[in-house]
Amino acid sequence: MLEIDGISKSYFRKKVLEDISFKANEGEILGLMGPNGAGKTTLIRIINQITSADKGYISFQGKLMKQDFLKDIGYLPEERGLYRSMTVEKQALFLAKLRGLNSSDAKTQINYWFDRFGIQGWRKKRIEELSKGMAQKIQFICTVLHDPTLLILDEPFSGFDPINIDLIRKEIIRFKEQGKTILLSTHNMQSVEEICDKAVLIHNGQKILEGNILDLRNEHKESIYSISFHGNMIGFATALWAGYEIIDKIAHTDEFFTVYLKMRKENEINDLLGAVMPHVKITEVKEVLPSMENVFMQQINGDKVAIDE
């Protein structure tokens, strides 16, 4: 569907992107991650033909990307922008036409989306009369009005309240189910974990990570387990030996705890269970996978995994 191959870009001798390659397939949500200034926006602009790459190429549906394909792409930039003095309806009509819809199709689509988001009453309002969240909704609708096959959403959840975040999330999942490809650039790692199939991490203009979300989390796991038990915490701790390191604990009651342990050396979970079972009553044991945020932090800073589950 979308293939990025060896894209490089420099601004005044400063390398912004260096040999970036990845693919996004149909019906897939790909999370594009990276710290501020990593080069995500530049890459997105190159995909959208807003700027050109110094090297490499982009193919869309098997063909070299060109201006004509932009009508099949919906782009929601991070820096939202609408004509403030235009009415919602005129704005949507103008942008829909600009993306290739004729007047009647544009009106049909506008009706559908205004109904879907329950905003028929906003038609005649000027953008400057709307709140930030309301304007964000309009911006989202304008992005998808022309029924694109590829959606490029840069921070789609920013500026929304939890209810609207949920609304947008559901829409994105619906698009995926319809077979659309979604490129999601966000700092919201929870969203990446929840809705993305794949992720690409860019840092200092270079791709440093790519893969399936679950695979990435598995690849970065550090033999951390959580054990919940009834019993005495001191008894539990004394049953352990140097092969395990308690890195965190939660006391639910005086007699009920959850402990996070990191295995050392070649120790296995069975060895651990054998050591503590005579002293406490175990209710749950599971391996803790790092969150995408942890993966992100690890890759960018080399930080140790901080348990957040």
Binding site: N48, Q49, L82
Partner: peptide, 16 residues
């Protein structure tokens, strides 16, 4: 104005 209210990026995703 288009530059400062950022709509230019939306427009440039449709036109050169």
């Amino acid at each position: 104005k288009e530059k400062s209210n950022r709509i230019v990026e939306v427009l440039l995703a449709s036109v050169s």
